[in-house]
């Protein structure tokens, strides 16, 4: 079988790529696999580079044509810390530093939504030391969600307990908005 990219060398790598639920068989030679980014992260299984390119509708030929022309018309976002531009980010699919997230924030959510099944907001761990007040804030949010759920399921006794915990937590953090009349 010949390589589907260069049509010269024999295809030595064969795998299935799943993009948005569509399965495609990929047969490429090692050289093309490296060049086209299929092998950038073998640890991750499917090619993330290609997955991302697909998500951003990134097309190499298009970028070449646009460089210096069309892209300049649009305002180019540039990260003040690492100097990465949004165009560069779209082409590599990687951030250059933590500040990039802030810099590109206005355009990030659609991308994240597509990569993470509609999600844009972190719901997991908070760094233990750095997290500071965020831990209490998250605990409060968790309690409130639990409270909501308990009220909906008419588990009022349990709900009262959770409300006590919320008030205790608020008192502890000196939150002026105590739960007396809520």
């Amino acid at each position: 079988m010949e390589c589907q990219e260069c049509h010269q060398r024999p295809a030595t790598l064969h795998f299935t790529q799943v993009i948005n639920g569509n399965k495609t068989e990929v047969h490429v030679c090692e050289v093309c696999a490296k060049e086209k980014g299929y092998m950038t992260y073998p640890e991750e299984g499917y090619s993330l580079h290609n997955l991302l390119s697909g998500l951003f509708n990134f097309d190499t030929t298009q970028l070449k044509n646009h460089q210096g022309q069309a892209f300049k018309q649009e305002e180019e976002l540039t990260c003040p810390k690492c100097k990465m531009t949004f165009t560069e980010f779209k082409s590599v699919g990687k951030f250059g530093c933590a500040t990039c997230y802030e810099t590109f924030s206005s355009r990030l959510d659609p991308i994240l939504r597509r990569v993470h099944a509609g999600n844009t907001k972190h719901a997991g761990k908070i760094p233990k030391r750095q997290g500071g007040d965020l831990h209490t804030k998250k605990q409060l949010e968790d309690y409130k969600a639990e409270l909501q759920h308990l009220i909906e399921t008419e588990a009022f006794e349990e709900a009262a307990k959770v409300r006590d915990s919320i008030n205790a937590l608020k008192k502890q953090t000196g939150d002026p908005e105590t739960g007396e009349n809520s």
């Binding site: 997230y101 761990k125 760094p127």
Partner: peptide, 19 residues
């Protein structure tokens, strides 16, 4: 750590961000 309240752990690749 590079961490943000809404985006979580800020990874190099957007496919890893969050947790």
């Amino acid at each position: 750590y590079a961490f943000d309240e809404t985006k979580g752990y800020l990874t190099t690749c957007p496919t890893n961000v969050g947790t």
